[in-house]
Design a protein around this nucleic acid. Structure first.
Lengths: 232, 232
DNA sequence: CGGGAACTTGATCTCGGTCAATATTGGTGG
DNA sequence: CCACCAATATTGACCGAGATCAAGTTCCCG
């Protein structure tokens, strides 16, 4: 039987070397496992920062919503990733919502930072995590600023496919998106109708197919990636 | 007379506490000051990573260009910021271009990281820097994904105005953009014509005015921020 | 002055948004 | 197990914001 928070520990922030027992105990005292159901909120933009979260299972959408209801999902986070770390004057800068049922390890941010100060290699892992997140969001700005609708959807499918494969979220084929059309739309800066039409176009071009219960089968990875313009 | 790299040292990565003399000497050995003229390249996407840069003077655009020439500026960086830190398999993930004449302190990334490992508080400063960059790029995704053209331009002007004020790039009014229309367009995911039309709209609404030599006078900060939809 | 680059403005086209009408899925209770 | 209904997805018709194409206009710098 594994320790209550083993994923959190052994792979916390993609740390390479396993932690020794003493530090492991300390880490455990900082974090506790919690669960959320689909559509529940892990943290809300503007709320005072308490914990941040290391995802163990499920997918989390990090987003921001304008007064008039327009919403942009700024990142999709999978097992192994951290969410809720960014703050703006002591409050969460973004919102985190569970797209599937989610299990995550919650760490008190202040305690964690104090702990990191004692353990420099953990700091390096944190830098690594943030760097990778920053690169990903940078790529998203290219998608939103430069790609046309069908390019965006193609890019999205290729991205999701490799993300889920890499993090063992679900079998590679058929691909379960774990997102409704409206969530895809909010991620890609499109409407649900345009997302739907783009998917139909990719179907008509025999690049993908839809199987019962909405899963996607990628028929031609190469052409999908070409259609997405950016090798991610 | 100040030390050759004082900005780099005293405020490296927004470090709060000043460094002591010994560490200061070590830092100096890692970095050297270099200069670039407008439109010159600090680093190119895909090139093997050598140094990263702490900007002392001027503005740097971090960008990515697709095969077909479409370009997205993913971030604007001002004095005090770092650029060129993100890597993708040992190469730069983005391109860095000087928008004005730039003076920056170049640090060898490997040596710097080794140095940080010895000095945990520097690591915390690095985390701080990356967090802030991540929040900013997240905001840009909202701009690109959700705002209409004139909202984007309004947001841009408000953002630039407070950025330059905060970093003492130039006097607050009139505001020198340091960017041509095409660079603004590449940042906002628009065309130069649309940027120009949006600026004209804001002029017609008496929110801004253009003064000779292209500088911008912000006549109504409140309405500019409202038009930009996001309080940044 | 003269010429080239950057910016503005206008005319037209197109992609994606909006509005509306089905189709499909999934969940609930009879 | 099926009927029913609500939620979600697809498709169509139309419209409009922004891209594209094409003149002008202004601003520099020689």
């Amino acid at each position: 039987m594994s320790l209550p928070c083993d994923t959190c520990i052994g792979r916390t922030l993609n740390l390479c070397r396993p932690l020794d027992d003493a530090r492991l105990q300390q880490m455990l005292s900082l974090g506790g496992i919690r669960n959320w159901k689909r559509h529940e909120t892990l943290f809300r933009a503007g709320d005072p920062i308490g914990a941040f979260f290391k995802i163990r299972k499920g997918i989390v959408a990090v987003s921001q919503t304008l007064d008039d209801g327009r919403r942009q999902i700024t990142a999709l986070r999978a097992p192994g990733d951290c969410v809720g770390y960014l703050d703006k004057n002591g409050t969460y800068a973004f919102e985190g919502e569970a797209l599937t049922d989610v299990e995550a390890c919650a760490f008190d941010k202040r305690k964690f930072e104090a702990f990191v100060a004692q353990h420099p290699d953990l700091g390096a892992a944190l830098v690594e995590t943030l760097s990778s997140a920053l690169t990903q969001v940078g790529m998203l700005t290219v998608v939103l600023g430069q790609l046309r609708s069908t390019e965006r959807v193609a890019h999205f499918l290729a991205e999701i496919s490799s993300l889920y494969a890499e993090r063992h979220v679900s079998p590679v084929q058929p691909l379960t998106l774990h997102m409704g059309r409206n969530e895809i739309a909010d991620y890609l800066g499109l409407t649900i109708e345009t997302v739907s039409r783009s998917i139909s176009k990719l179907k008509r071009r025999n690049i993908i197919a839809l199987v019962e219960s909405g899963e996607v089968v990628i028929l031609d990875f190469q052409r999908l990636r070409d259609a997405g313009k950016m090798e991610s």
